[in-house]
Design a protein around this nucleic acid. Structure first.
Lengths: 377, 377
DNA sequence: ATTCTTTCCTGTAACGTTACAGTAGCCTTA
DNA sequence: TAAGGCTACTGTAACGTTACAGGAAAGAAT
């Protein structure tokens, strides 16, 4: 490759390709002393034992003497022995790998980072590795999942953006491959999942807006093909009817829509006579677009309208405290999913474990004052 | 677990032996038809060839007949043959894994997601896998890198947040382990890296602020222990002296500082008589804190002061267009790093390839008007 | 006719691990 | 005393792959 520019770079870069490396002050390709990694054989030789004995000693098998186990463990420790993953994998068929399949679309302010952090964090103490694979949403939805299964690339698979009837869930269930999801289907298939209770979120968001004196509410929900779109809509409608409020329908946009589309649509909406005075957003970036649209219509946040958003970072509370937030913790979700999938793989966890994360709309101080004052600032 | 554990399974998944076909209702963890993964042996048997021949045919070795190669390839294709990674890894010692070591601190609006997307994207066509590992910054800085090397967990390592004298760079160079970094050291050690030209960024940010009529500038830079802190400071100072501006020092905060600290410090700064009227920020979140601090001091963005920020998303341009932005593309960085490290591993790329991403301060339309009008709105 | 080349293919061994089927030695029990 | 049963350990084989040394067949050169 030398100094050739990699394909697929965007404009505006300068490549300083330096394929001249003639001055050989230090021949870097020859490592000084290749440190030989210890294997079971190394330990066995040193301990005067058979390889099998060493293996079983390190696995704490019942038919190995306590004194021998201790000796082997000490030796392994002092040599820095780490089992060769390839050997284990080849012999046992277990890769000790968890695959996370990610869609790049609709990145919501680093939620995937948070998910990855949580998973990595939990896996590191479980001697599993996380491999991340990208999924092109325009291609076959089964693509990555199928290739992982066919290549035996992982012991278990994690994914999100679940549809009510999800082909991946069906496929993996048929194949008997362990998986866990962020989100849940309507299919009645039992599997581990972590979900945010979007129904409860939407309902309490409606309540919150009502407590701020808002009467005509709109929902900018997730893309309708995702399972939680229905949950959120259900909670929203129940809140509306319980409290006797009015619902204003929003057409043609969802939280995945481009900023310009959301902003334009909300602006149009807010210029109508029957405009909403409260909006529930299913996503963080969308809430910013919504607010921008309403402000473009000349309305004032906190005065003419309020917005409730579900967010995973602290950005709103720090920088737009006038927007009400419910916190969704993706890092915790990642931790939970990692533990669930490993439990499932190792047979220590039941298939129908799940976790429903209860939303809590956090009341900032300024908001409290507003409620106490009984009005809108 | 219901049935007996499989004695020898092919891939990463536990396959229950299909020879036992007892009750076929749905015994929960017995998959209907466990598809036996084809191996070289399978193909060899079907083709009436030796295993070695098949292996060499698939590798396009010169000593295999063209007709045989074609036949083997057709067969492999039709069986959906995928080489067993464990077998390859055990035999060749090559894992086909790239490890990305991430620090969770200072997540800047999903930059790590973007980096991961870029790396995954590039690796997927290179038949390498990305494993993500977390690094606790409070622990031994060498920790994850050392354990990857000692466990032979990856063929190459990627990391960022480089220090001027970086222990990881030194360690991996000594061990002869391929690595590539986002950012560069001052150590003079030759290795592949991708860096954003922070020196040029800071200088052009200063120029931009000057063109907006700003005369007294401050820099909120990266944490001083990181290599690019110096680069940014250098560019900032050069811009200041070239243009004959004044520099206002900021003490005790950097882009990693908590929001409250930055906001409080900037507020204090902006209440001084000799307050700056332009601020260059090294990070996106910090820029928001800076702006919040200045506004808390009663100043108006675009009127009393301006801010320039380096960001990786489109958030500022969409939602705070009054803040000037330079775009840093982490996804492109990820793609480049993936290609560089694989090139390094496979010996097709030189060690001293690097890529310096040239910043461009993007001028929004409103900003253009401001400049054309020659004043501050 | 013999030797040498070239072409195309093959068998064996080994990577590090674990499942399995032993075995030697000793201690109980009848 | 013999049979049986523990305890503590061992050797072999196999997982799927590739490096290596080789080898048969056929044509070319002597």
């Amino acid at each position: 490759m030398g100094g050739a520019a990699p394909s697929g770079t965007t404009g505006g870069f300068a490549l300083i390709g330096n394929m001249v490396s003639h001055d050989e002050t230090r021949s870097e390709d020859a490592p000084a002393q290749p440190p030989v990694r210890p294997t079971l054989k190394t330990i066995a030789r040193l301990a005067g034992l058979g390889v099998t004995t060493v293996s079983r000693a390190l696995h704490d098998a019942p038919d190995i003497g306590e004194e021998t186990k201790a000796r082997v463990r000490r030796l392994a420790e002092s040599l820095g022995y780490q089992p060769n993953r390839a050997g284990v994998r080849l012999r046992t068929g277990r890769s000790h790998v968890i695959a996370l399949v990610l869609a790049t679309e609709a990145e919501e302010l680093g939620i995937n980072s948070q998910l990855i952090y949580g998973i990595s964090e939990a896996l590191s103490s479980l001697t599993y590795q996380l491999v991340v694979m990208l999924h092109d949403p325009s291609a076959d939805p089964l693509g990555p999942v199928r290739s992982i299964v066919e290549a035996g690339a992982a012991d278990g698979i994690l994914f999100a953006r679940i549809e009510p009837d999800d082909a991946r869930v069906r496929f993996l269930t048929e194949r008997g491959v362990p998986f866990a999801t962020h989100g849940r289907t309507d299919m009645g298939i039992v599997h581990p999942y972590f979900d945010f209770d979007n129904e409860a979120y939407a309902e309490s968001a409606v309540k919150r807006l009502a407590s701020l004196g808002r009467r005509r509410l709109a929902l900018v929900g997730p893309p309708p093909h995702l399972a939680y779109a229905r949950h959120m809509a259900t909670g929203f409608c129940r809140g509306i009817s319980t409290l006797g409020l009015e619902k204003v329908s929003v057409e043609g946009i969802d939280t995945d829509s481009p900023h310009e589309r959301i902003q334009a649509e909300v602006q149009r909406l807010m210029q109508r006579a029957d405009r909403p005075d409260g909006i529930v957003s299913g996503g963080a970036v969308a809430a910013l677009s919504v607010t921008a649209g309403a402000e473009a219509a000349g309305l004032v946040l906190g005065g003419d309208f309020d917005v409730v958003v579900k967010e995973s970072s602290d950005l709103f509370r720090k920088f737009r405290p006038a927007i009400e937030t419910a916190r969704e913790d993706f890092r915790a979700a990642g931790r939970w999913l990692a533990q669930a999938i490993v439990g499932r793989i190792e047979g220590t966890a039941d298939a129908d474990i799940h976790f429903l994360d209860v939303p809590r709309i956090e009341v900032s101080e300024t908001m409290d004052e507003r409620v106490v004052a009984g009005g809108i600032r």
